[in-house]
Design a binder for these strands. Structure first.
Length: 800
RNA sequence: GCGGACGUGGCGGAAUUGGCAGACGCGCCAGACUUAGGAUCUGGUAUCUUUGAUGUGGGAGUUCAAGUCUCUUCGUCCGCACCA
């Protein structure tokens, strides 16, 4: 079969017949299948896109054949840094390069032959989409979920620009190699932490990979503890601790270098040392700062604090292993019972006071729970009792309280860049922050801007954009010059698809409530903690605002693996190991390529590219085609053969259904190969009518996996268009019942014999039969049988 | 460093979730057909000192039974909040 022309033929027929358009009037059996949308940073689809989309489409087609009304849209996540960097390098405007890339990618996506409903297409960089991204911002702001605060950015002093983390290589700017510094800017945040608890607890309701849920749990990082207030001569500060039972062992406290009180607490004598330490810290990133392999460093600030438990004066240090962004930005140092504090105390000769005793183990630091010592009236209590009691006593004095902390931080959404959705806010000297009115959306991103990096947000330099009249007082005012993180665009796109052309609202709530949540979401696991968490946050926020009636966007989630280069490394231009799908599509056609992607890898694992197996898949479709086109005019058939073939057929149906539901495409294809072999083996000895039924099922079974190929064969065999509206085969369980089954016989766990027995044999009879076997009785003679374990229908184990 | 995963023949991978390790395929070997074969078909293929024994990165443990569970160790990969 000339697959290339067959594919073109059916793609046209499907498009003309609107075969893949979603039926909005039949939502009772809807199935929303969503793949993470494409990011058009390069003009071409790479193997990663194919690997994400083609197998997912096979799943979607399978569900459709099972009678579901499948909605499978596609779009483009079109804002972002790479397009802007490309523009800085080449002078080609991000909008031009992006829209061009999208055009090419759309054509290539169509050649996959996936059943994307292109009428629902969205492009996030177009005003009719980002208008509603801005609307989301306004709604979050109205509901107290967006606020401004200072936050550090990576600043390159030589390029005069803010750098993304990815542009910082070993603390230096990727372009000019200068040392990157941290600089505080006032920026917008979304209050995702308000939903920390729900984001955590609702994970239990989701059909997601356990590892992904675990990663999100750890990312949210709930810890239950207490806040304790320490007084100083210059004001008080709080520390967060999960081990308030060790409070009597505190020998110092540490503030993070960015803590608000640092300057106040630093005495003139120590000013110089503290300032130079702070300057050093601003050059190191957080991952390095938290590394426990790095030697701890810190500096005394000259002041002392009072431990509220025992009124002891303890020194206050500034150290970079404490982060402002977590807890209170201050910790109490208990060297005897914490690894990091222990190291720090040894380095700076601070006292190490043991206050917890364990059952065994005298070595310090001792980080387990135990019994209190040296803690006044709390001596003798267990750690757990003491936590309770110490909090009670201190909270009555007003200097401690129970506190739950999350590692999760609020989401910083401001970007000092051009290629993103403008933040719909106006800054007026008198009226302060003025959100743009909904009727004035979208705030259009101007085309003519200078986005070369020179210290200012590109939009700030665009006068016709930045200068406006204040909508309240009419005085000259300025727009916010920053744009939104592209993760904001992708946090709600799944809500837009079902109503993508709505110009009145982001979506129609009734429609969305019927079509969502997404039933199956497929995309890379690298999104486990960010995109997937942000999308969940948006969903919950929109629910609480009353726009939708569900709280989780993605009921079920699957991660595809990564296809690596033939050398086992990630594909990259610089490594020269990029494999392009195009050459294979031209040579074999898209169905063969799709089949190979599904057969050659474990879907969730991926692995190094190797095209040896693609021939095998091609050979397989040839075999399928030949057997399907074979004539069998037998009036009647051999009963044994028909029974065997019927078993093979129904076994394949049953297994393939289970495999398709779990994205286990490689085993589904293996079962199809077995079934095809059975057709070769028994095809000539069965009746013509039975053979035709079997062949028809083969076409239906292969249809989701090789859609054009199957549609063509279906037509040749006289089937009614389309094969995808012809139903998926259903397993006849009766055909799977066998009269005889093989039982493995183990002695002390080792296989010594196999016997064929009647399937319905009674246990007593089975035992007798097995013990009388020649192979077995020789092992047993003269020994006592301690146990006789029967695993029904599989094996027995005789323990001597 | 922290968090998460993975490790099975020469290779890609399977294993009903604790029950016959290596399904299916590639490669290789042998045979058939053929003027011819990098086509097609059939059979074989974990290893070894082969009446048996060993074997799922290494070491220990739980169990009648471990690729699967526990501990430990080595190696590889992903994420770490401004790449998306």
């Amino acid at each position: 079969m000339d697959l290339i022309s067959v594919e073109k033929k059916w793609q046209n027929i499907w498009e003309d017949n609107k075969t893949n358009s979603f039926d909005y009037d039949n939502l009772s059996k809807k199935h929303y299948v969503l793949e993470m949308f494409s990011y058009p940073s390069a003009a071409k689809l790479h193997i990663g896109h194919w690997y994400n989309y083609a197998p997912s489409d096979s799943y979607a087609r399978f569900k459709r054949m099972q009678g579901y009304n499948v909605f499978q849209p596609m779009g483009f996540d079109a804002f972002g840094l790479p397009a802007e960097n490309y523009a800085i390098k080449t002078g080609i405007h991000p909008q031009d390069s992006t829209l061009n890339n999208i055009e090419t990618m759309r054509k290539q996506l169509k050649r996959i032959g996936a059943m994307f409903d292109w009428s629902a297409d969205i492009v996030t960089c177009q005003p009719d989409y980002y208008k509603w991204t801005q609307w989301m911002f306004l709604k979050l702001y109205e509901n107290g979920l967006a606020y401004r605060s200072e936050a550090p950015v990576n600043w390159c002093p030589s390029c005069n620009t803010v750098l993304a983390n990815e542009q910082v290589i070993d603390g230096s700017c990727e372009r000019c190699n200068s040392t990157v510094q941290r600089k505080n800017l006032t920026q917008w945040f979304f209050k995702i932490t308000k939903y920390a608890e729900e984001l955590l607890s609702d994970l239990d309701t989701l059909d997601w990979p356990e590892k992904t849920k675990l990663m999100q749990r750890n990312w949210i990082g709930k810890s239950i503890g207490a806040e304790v207030e320490f007084n100083t001569d210059y004001g008080s500060f709080k520390v967060f601790t999960t081990r308030i039972d060790t409070l009597f062992g505190v020998s110092y406290v540490v503030l993070s270098p960015e803590h608000k009180l640092v300057d106040k607490l630093t005495t003139p004598q120590y000013k110089e040392a503290v300032n130079s330490y702070k300057a050093e810290c601003s050059k190191i990133n957080e991952i390095e700062r938290l590394s426990s392999a790095r030697e701890k460093s810190g500096v005394f600030c000259g002041s002392y604090a009072v431990n509220p438990a025992n009124n002891k004066k303890i020194p206050i240090y500034i150290a970079d292993y404490v982060l402002v962004s977590y807890g209170t930005g201050a910790v109490m140092g208990v060297p005897a019972h914490d690894e990091r504090d222990f190291e720090f105390a040894k380095k700076y000769n601070l006292p190490i006071n043991r206050v917890i005793k364990g059952v065994h183990g005298d070595e310090l630091p001792f980080t387990d729970y135990g019994t209190l010592i040296g803690s006044g009236r709390f001596d003798g209590m267990t750690s757990l009792q003491a936590m309770e009691e110490i909090i009670n006593e201190l909270s009555s004095k007003g200097c401690a309280q129970k506190k739950i902390n999350y590692r999760l931080r609020d989401w910083l959404v401001s970007r000092q860049r051009y290629w993103g959705a403008p933040i719909p806010v106006i800054h007026c000297e008198d009226c302060k922050i003025v959100p743009v009115a909904e009727k004035d959306l979208p705030v259009l991103l101007p085309y003519n801007v200078d986005f070369t990096p020179d210290g200012k947000s590109p939009l700030e330099k665009c006068h016709e954009f930045i200068n406006v009249k204040c909508p309240i007082c009419g005085k000259p005012a300025k727009r916010d010059a920053d744009t939104l993180d592209t993760f904001v665009c992708s946090s709600w796109y799944f809500l837009r698809y079902p109503d993508s052309k709505n110009s009145e609202k982001p979506f129609d709530s009734d429609k969305i409530n019927k079509l969502l949540p997404v039933d199956k979401y497929i995309g890379g696991s690298e999104h486990a903690c960010m995109h997937l968490l942000y999308a969940r946050f948006f969903t919950k926020a929109l629910r609480d605002m009353g726009y939708i009636n569900f709280g989780e966007p993605f009921t079920s989630l699957v991660h595809q693996g990564i296809i690596l280069g033939p050398d086992g490394n990630r594909m990259s231009k610089s490594k020269g190991n990029v494999v392009s799908p195009d050459e294979y599509i031209v040579k074999y056609g898209s169905d063969i390529f799709r089949l190979y992607l599904m057969f050659g890898f474990a879907y969730t694992e991926g692995g190094p590219w190797n095209d040896e197996g693609i021939k095998a898949v091609s050979r397989f479709t040839d075999r399928v085609e030949k057997i399907i086109l074979k004539q069998n005019s037998n009036a009647s058939g051999n009963i044994e053969s028909e029974k065997e073939l019927n078993f093979a057929r129904n076994f394949a149906i049953k297994e393939i259904i289970a495999d398709m539901d779990t994205f286990s495409f490689n085993t589904a294809i293996a079962r199809l190969m077995e079934y095809t072999s059975s057709l070769y083996k028994y095809g000539e000895s069965v009746s013509g009518s039975f053979f035709n039924q079997c062949v028809k099922d083969l076409i239906l079974l292969i249809a989701p996996l090789a859609p054009h190929f199957a549609e063509e064969l279906w037509q040749i065999k006289g089937g009614k268009f389309s094969v995808f509206d012809s139903g998926f085969p259903v397993c006849d369980e009766k055909a799977l019942i066998r009269d005889e089954i093989e039982i493995a016989v183990q002695i002390n766990g080792k296989i010594r014999a196999r016997v064929k027995l009647q399937a319905d044999i009674k246990e007593k009879e089975l035992k007798e039969t097995i013990l009388s076997l020649k192979d077995i009785s020789s092992y047993i003679s003269g020994k006592e049988i301690k146990k006789f374990i029967v695993v029904k229908g599989k094996l027995v184990n005789i323990v001597l």
